[in-house]
Design a protein around this nucleic acid. Structure first.
Length: 878
DNA sequence: TCGATTTTAAACAAGG
DNA sequence: ACCTTGTTTAAAATCG
C-alpha cells in the first residue's frame, strides 16, 4: 500500500528529486548575497528527494490549488500548505513555522507562529503526526549559530552513559515507601530553559515506568525564559537550572507506592560529560522490574508530566515503547484540534526520541487522589488508548514508527471501536484511531483506508449502526458484533507475525535485554511460553470450542472465507482463566483507574495487550477480562485488606489479598455473582461464572454457567432494554420479585443493573419501555418509546434455522439472593439487533418475545425463533 | 504446492 | 464536481 514503489501519485516528491542533487556530503561553500539563484546555500533532504536551497527564502509545504510551494511534501493532511519557511538572514538560517501542527526541529517542537527559529547548521525537521522528515544542512561556511540560541544540538550518535542503580532486595521492592532520595545532576552545556511551563513549582509524579523501560528526556524548545523545570518520573524528579548549565534529577518518594518502593533508597547521581548527549539510567525501577532508562538528549532535559502540569503542558511526547518525554506544549492542542481534544491527554510521539521510536500512546495524569499516579491512556478521547508494542531498544530511530503494526485490519478496527467510550465509532473515527496510534498509517497513502472499509463491509463481526435521525453527521457507527465482542477485543492486541518479516520479536525480550535490576517475581518462573509461530495466525476457533455456529453461516458461499475469515482465537476470556496476566504484578501498580494500560499475555507470549483500567490500586493482584474490559483487581496499600474494586457492571473484592471474585457483583461485602467464585475460607472454587445465593462461603451454588431462574411471579415480563439516555448504560426491568434496586440481570454474561420499580413507576425518568406492552413491576405501562439499544443485549448466538437457543439470563435479587419464588416459565423480551436477510437495508431494531422454559437446573431455553443476526448478506450468490 | 487467510486495488453507488 | 462512505469483485500476497 504505501510501498514506495507503488501507487500512482506516489511521491510527488519524486519531482523534487529532479530539482538537482548534491553530493552526498555536500561541501561547504562560501556564500555571497549576490550568488542567489546559482549557488546552493543549504540543502534539504527528505526521504526521497533532495533540494538545494539557492534562494533566501524557501517555503516547504504542500501544493494546492492556491499555488505551489518550493518544496512540496506531498499531500498529507498533517502538513499545511505553507508549513515551514526557511529563510536566510546572513549569516544564519531561520525557520518560521506556519503549519498548524507545528514542526519538530531535532525533536524539539516548534509551534505555529513562534518567533523565527534559528536553525543549527544541521538539523532534522519532522512534521508532527507523521514520519516525514527533512534534513536541513547549511552550506554556508560562515554559518555558525551562537550556542545561546542553538535549538538543540544536531543529532549525533547515541552515547549512553550507563549507570547502574544499586539493586535492592526483592523483599523491599514492594514494601511501602521508605524515604528515598538521590540526585542526578547532569552538567550540560545547553543553556535553554523550558518555555511556558509556568514555573517549576509543581512536582510531577509520573509513573509511566510501570509500562516503560526507559525514560527519555528531550530538550524543550529554546526560549529565553528562565526557570527551573521540574521533572518527575516514577518518583524521579528533576529540574534544570535557569542558566541551563545543570540539570538536577532527584529521586524522591511521592509517586505511586510501587514506584516509590522500587526506587527507594536509590541514590542516583550522574553527570553529563561535555559532549554527552544522552544519559542512560538503568535502575531497578518500577514497571517490569527491570530497567528504566532516562535518556536526556543534549539539551536541557525537560519533563512535564503530572496532573498539576497537564494544564500547563498540554502536550508531552513520550516514547511509547518506553517513557520518553518530550515536552511540547500546545502541540497536542493543535494536533488534535480536529477531535476536540484540548490538552487533557499527553501524546506519545517518539519518532525522534532517542532512537527508541514507538507508536503513539497516551498518558493521562491522574488526580491527586491517586497519589500522583499517572495512568496511561486518556480515556476522554478514546483515541489515546493505545497498544503497546514491545520495545526495541536497539532499533534505529524511527524504525518502529515506520514499521507496520503486527495487527490485521480487523484487529485494528476492533481496537479502535473497543477504545471508544460507547464502543462505536464512525469510519473516520476508526481512521483517526489508527493514524494516531500507528504512525505507519499516517502516510498520505490511503490504500489502507480502503482496506479498512473493505474489512468493515466484509467482516461480519462488524456491524453498522445507523445514526439516529437527530444525530447529525455522515456515515454510520460501527460496532463489534456483540456476541463476539469479548472474544474479538481479547484478540485485538495479540500480535501476529509481521507479514513479510521473518523474525518475530518476542515480547519481553526487551525486558531481559535491558534489565539490570532483578527480575520481578512475576517474571520469575514464567513458563508455558509458546512460540509466536503457534499464534502467527489469527487462529480459527478450534472445532471443539464454542462459537461453532460460525461455521454454519454462508456455507457454500464462494466468499465465505472472507466473511468468516477474521477469526480470533477462542479462549476463555470471561474469567480469570483468560490467560491475561499482568506482566509485573509485584510492583507495577502504576495503572490508574480510568486510564488504560498494557498487559502482557503470559501464557501465549503474544506480547502486550491493551486494556482499560477499570480499577487499580497497589499492587495489582489479578487481572481478568470481562465484556471486553480488563479488570485489575487489587489490594490496597500495605495491608492488602478489603479493597473493593469497582468494575464495569459489578465489583470485585479483594479480601486479605485473596481475590474473591473478579468482575462479579458484591453487595454488602457479599459476592453475588460472576467471574468465578471461591470460598475463601476453604479456598474451594464454588462456581465458574456462576452465582451463589448468599455469601460465598456458605452459600449454595446455584449455577455453574451463570444462569438461574428468571422470576416471573406475577406473570410479568422481564424487559431488557436501554434507556434513551446516552449517558445511561443498558438497564433492565424485572418483575417485582426481582426488581429491586441494586439487582442485576445478566444476559449472555453481561450484567445489567436492575432499575428500581419504584423509580420507574414514579418518575419514568430516562427509562423507557418498548412497544410490546411490557409493564413495570407496578403494573404501570411504561411510556412506549423506541428502544435505542442496539446489539449490546443479545440473546445468545442465534443460528440460522434454529428454532430455539439458549438465553443466558441471570437474575439476582439484591435482598435475598436468588429469588426462590419462581415459576417455571417466564417471558423475556429482548431487544435485539437484527438485520434483514433478504435486503440490504441497514439493520433494524427488533423486539422479540422469548419464552423461557426453565428447569431447576437454572437454564432456560428460548422457544421462539430469533432471526439470525446475519450480518453480511451477499448480494448475489453464484 | 495448496488452501486459508489477509491485503491490496479498484469499480461503483449513494449521499453530503 | 468532489469527497466520503460503503459494497463488492478480483487478485495478489502471506503463511502454515
Amino acid at each position: 500500500m504505501s510501498a514506495p514503489s507503488k501507487g500512482p501519485h506516489q511521491h510527488a516528491w519524486a519531482l523534487l528529486a529532479l530539482q538537482k542533487s548534491a553530493p552526498a556530503s555536500p561541501s561547504v561553500v562560501p556564500w555571497s548575497p549576490d550568488s542567489k539563484g546559482s549557488t546552493a546555500i543549504a540543502r534539504l533532504e527528505g526521504k526521497e528527494f533532495e533540494y538545494m536551497i539557492r534562494q533566501s527564502r524557501v517555503v516547504i509545504g504542500r501544493n494546492s490549488s492556491k499555488g505551489d510551494v518550493d518544496v512540496n511534501m506531498g499531500h498529507n493532511s498533517f502538513i499545511s500548505r505553507k508549513h515551514i519557511e526557511i529563510y536566510f538572514d546572513t549569516p544564519y538560517f531561520y525557520m518560521q513555522c506556519n503549519g498548524k501542527n507545528g514542526v519538530f526541529v531535532d525533536g524539539v517542537f516548534q509551534r505555529k507562529g513562534a518567533p523565527p527559529f534559528l536553525l543549527p547548521r544541521q538539523c532534522t525537521m519532522r512534521f508532527p503526526s507523521t514520519n516525514i522528515k527533512i534534513q536541513f544542512q547549511s552550506l554556508v561556511d560562515e554559518f555558525d549559530p551562537p550556542p545561546a540560541r542553538l535549538a538543540s544540538p544536531p543529532k549525533r550518535k547515541l552515547q549512553p552513559l550507563r549507570i547502574s542503580i544499586p539493586e535492592q532486595d526483592d523483599a523491599n521492592l514492594t514494601s511501602p515507601f521508605p524515604s528515598p532520595t538521590g540526585t542526578i545532576s547532569a552538567a550540560n552545556s545547553c543553556p535553554t530553559s523550558p518555555r511556558s511551563y509556568h514555573g517549576s513549582s509543581g512536582i510531577s509524579h509520573v509513573s509511566g515506568a510501570a509500562l516503560g523501560r526507559r525514560l527519555g528526556l528531550q530538550p524543550p524548545a529554546p526560549t529565553p525564559a528562565a526557570g527551573a523545570v521540574m521533572l518527575s518520573a516514577s518518583g524521579i524528579e528533576g529540574s534544570s537550572s535557569a542558566d541551563g548549565t545543570k540539570q538536577q534529577f532527584t529521586v524522591r518518594h511521592g509517586g505511586p507506592p510501587a514506584a516509590v518502593a522500587a526506587l527507594r533508597n536509590t541514590e542516583i547521581k550522574m553527570t553529563l560529560a561535555p559532549g554527552e548527549e544522552y544519559v542512560t539510567l538503568n535502575s531497578g525501577m518500577a514497571g517490569d522490574g527491570g530497567s528504566a532508562t532516562i535518556l536526556a538528549s543534549g539539551g536541557p532535559a525537560t519533563l512535564m508530566v503530572a496532573s498539576s502540569s497537564i494544564k500547563n503542558a498540554p502536550e508531552t511526547y513520550i516514547d511509547a515503547s518506553g517513557i520518553i518525554f518530550d515536552s511540547s506544549p500546545a502541540a497536542m492542542t493543535a494536533q488534535y484540534a480536529d477531535d476536540g481534544v484540548t490538552g487533557s491527554g499527553i501524546v506519545l510521539d517518539a519518532s525522534e526520541s532517542g532512537g527508541l521510536g514507538g507508536s503513539h500512546n497516551g498518558i493521562h495524569a491522574s488526580s491527586s487522589a491517586s497519589g500522583g499516579l499517572l495512568s496511561v491512556g486518556a480515556e476522554e478521547s478514546g483515541y489515546f488508548t493505545s497498544p503497546h508494542p514491545p520495545d526495541q531498544p536497539n532499533s534505529p530511530p524511527g524504525a518502529k514508527d515506520d514499521s507496520k503494526p503486527p495487527y490485521s485490519y480487523a484487529q485494528l478496527i476492533v481496537q479502535a471501536i473497543s477504545s471508544a467510550l460507547d464502543k462505536q465509532l464512525t469510519l473516520s473515527g476508526i481512521y483517526s484511531y489508527i493514524t494516531k496510534n500507528y504512525p505507519y498509517y499516517r502516510t498520505a497513502d490511503k490504500g489502507w483506508q480502503n482496506s479498512i472499509r473493505h474489512n468493515l463491509s466484509l467482516n461480519r463481526y462488524f456491524v453498522k449502526v445507523p445514526r439516529s435521525q437527530e444525530e447529525p453527521g455522515k456515515g454510520s457507527f460501527w460496532r463489534i458484533d456483540p456476541p463476539s465482542e469479548v472474544k474479538l477485543v481479547d484478540q485485538a492486541f495479540k500480535r501476529r507475525r509481521q507479514r513479510g518479516v521473518p523474525i518475530f520479536k518476542a515480547p519481553f525480550s526487551h525486558i531481559s535485554a535491558s534489565r539490570s535490576a532483578p527480575t520481578s517475581p512475576s517474571h520469575v518462573g514464567m513458563s508455558g511460553l509458546v512460540t509466536p509461530d503457534s499464534l502467527s495466525r489469527e487462529g480459527s476457533p478450534s472445532p471443539s470450542e464454542h462459537y461453532s455456529h460460525d461455521s454454519h453461516h454462508y456455507q457454500g458461499d464462494s466468499h465465505s472465507y472472507q466473511a468468516e475469515s477474521h477469526h480470533f482465537t477462542s479462549e476463555n476470556t470471561s474469567t480469570s482463566s483468560s490467560g491475561v496476566h499482568f506482566s509485573d504484578s509485584s510492583n507495577s501498580s502504576l495503572y490508574h483507574e480510568g486510564g488504560t494500560a498494557t498487559l502482557h499475555y503470559r501464557d501465549d507470549d503474544l506480547g502486550d495487550a491493551h486494556c482499560d483500567v477499570i480499577a487499580a490500586a497497589s499492587p495489582v493482584r489479578h487481572i481478568t477480562s470481562q465484556g471486553g474490559k480488563y479488570i485489575l483487581a487489587t489490594t490496597s496499600g500495605a495491608n492488602n485488606v478489603g479493597t473493593v474494586v469497582k468494575t464495569i457492571e459489578g465489583c470485585s473484592i479483594v479480601d486479605g489479598g485473596v481475590v474473591k471474585t473478579v468482575g462479579g457483583i458484591i453487595e454488602g461485602g457479599v459476592v453475588k455473582t460472576l467471574g468465578g467464585l471461591m470460598d475463601t475460607s476453604t479456598g474451594i472454587v464454588k462456581t465458574v461464572g456462576g452465582i451463589t445465593d448468599a455469601g460465598c462461603a456458605g452459600g449454595m451454588v446455584r449455577t455453574i454457567s451463570g444462569m438461574t431462574k428468571v422470576d416471573t411471579s406475577g406473570g410479568q415480563q422481564v424487559v431488557i432494554q436501554q434507556t434513551t439516555s446516552d449517558q445511561t448504560p443498558t438497564q433492565v426491568l424485572l418483575p417485582s420479585g426481582l426488581s429491586k434496586y441494586g439487582s442485576y440481570v445478566s444476559v449472555n454474561g453481561e450484567m445489567r443493573r436492575v432499575i428500581s420499580a419504584n423509580t420507574i413507576g414514579s418518575s419514568n425518568s430516562g427509562t423507557v419501555n418498548n412497544s410490546s406492552g411490557a409493564v413495570n413491576s407496578n403494573g404501570n405501562s411504561c411510556k412506549p418509546q423506541k428502544p435505542v439499544m442496539l446489539g449490546i443485549v443479545s440473546c445468545g448466538q442465534p443460528q440460522q434455522g434454529t428454532p430455539s437457543h439458549m438465553v443466558y439470563a441471570t437474575a439476582i435479587s439484591s435482598n435475598n439472593g436468588i429469588n426462590s419464588n419462581s415459576s417455571n416459565n417466564g417471558t423475556v423480551t429482548v431487544v435485539t439487533h437484527q438485520q434483514q436477510e433478504t435486503t440490504f437495508k441497514p439493520p433494524f431494531m427488533q423486539t422479540k418475545q422469548m419464552q423461557i422454559s426453565e428447569d431447576n437446573e437454572a437454564r432456560g431455553t428460548l422457544t421462539s425463533t430469533v432471526e439470525p443476526v446475519l450480518k453480511k448478506p451477499r448480494c448475489d450468490v453464484p
